[in-house]
Design a protein around this nucleic acid. Sequence first.
DNA 1: TTGATTTATTAACATTTGTTAACGGGTATT
DNA 2: AATACCCGTTAACAAATGTTAATAAATCAA
Lengths: 189, 189
Amino acid sequence: MQNAHNDARPFFSKLFSFSEEVIDLMCVSSSFLKVNKDETVITEATFNPNVYVIKKGLVRSYFIDEVSGNEINKTFRSEQEYFMQCEEPELKSSYQALEPCEFYVIHLDIAGDLKKNHASFQEFLYRTVSEDWRRKELLNKMLSLPTAKARYAMLEKKFPDWLQRVPQFHLASFLNMTPVHLSRVRKSH
Amino acid sequence: MQNAHNDARPFFSKLFSFSEEVIDLMCVSSSFLKVNKDETVITEATFNPNVYVIKKGLVRSYFIDEVSGNEINKTFRSEQEYFMQCEEPELKSSYQALEPCEFYVIHLDIAGDLKKNHASFQEFLYRTVSEDWRRKELLNKMLSLPTAKARYAMLEKKFPDWLQRVPQFHLASFLNMTPVHLSRVRKSH
DNA sequence: TTGATTTATTAACATTTGTTAACGGGTATT
DNA sequence: AATACCCGTTAACAAATGTTAATAAATCAA
């Protein structure tokens, strides 16, 4: 993990219309993180108040089903997207790199008043939550579909990129079916 | 539909720490709406920029599965909760009263700058989205569980009120199973 | 209350989906 | 190139869930 400093400036600028002051603050309080394929970035167990912005790569978020002990994938994120750990134990996820990844990590504990006193950062957070709300609404709709075939069809339509980049057995978990069954669905498609 | 005026004041006050000015604005630009059981409040087809705050009663939100033509329930809302129609066609829902309901309806088109210039209303919206995000996260987790039994167990744990108030066949749709199967699950439980 | 309508339960059967195991193609490591 | 490992496919079978229909229970309207 290295300090990001001005390296991150053009990247943050493209991300959102932050004020110059906010970008300064973000650069000063962020670091640069590289992880290998398959490495875990955050686990359900640990908490830190960091925003991980993906510069490069692909990540899956998942939780452990207490009944079966299996991992269940919640979603995937890639370039220009971000994630952070929830505070509620109930909602915590783990994040694993499915490709070699590069992140800018904004340390909110260092960034101090970023959340409180800077309008453009607040707007960014509001936009982030709103966008994520909409995506979740869409995922909910997908998971509500009663047949595996219909869920797959919706994935294909709404998230075609994932079909290319995400290993099939991870998509299967995401779609609430087994890898064997996903293979069947694709065949009969 | 009647004008709400000062009738709504104590209700709005309890809902969130709005400024006096915002409460005035909300009262002036809101109406009071009563609907019978089973009546539809909003349909997927129509759009209006209103916030429906539930004073009394219970509502289900649902969408039509284009494949089967069936209604699929997304969630339920009751006293002190609110809902509004999404702008994205993809995410629109219909809302139906499962009990006789009373709403305060805030007409954002009339309320003018409520969303733009009033901090306490903006905070309210942000809190609303954040809370809803968390609930959706939880629902997603529930729908991701691979067995009907596990989904029902989680509903029982996390939303015990719904078990009391929501008709079983509507819970079944919400849990992504048939009413017949829900009955089986409950029996073997 | 009565009768009519809606909802919940149960059973038998059909379909979907999960499970296990074997096979084969790819990829990485040596 | 050889080996090992991971992943996707396929098949046979098992388990879960959907479907239909009959019945019972609950709710609603008259």
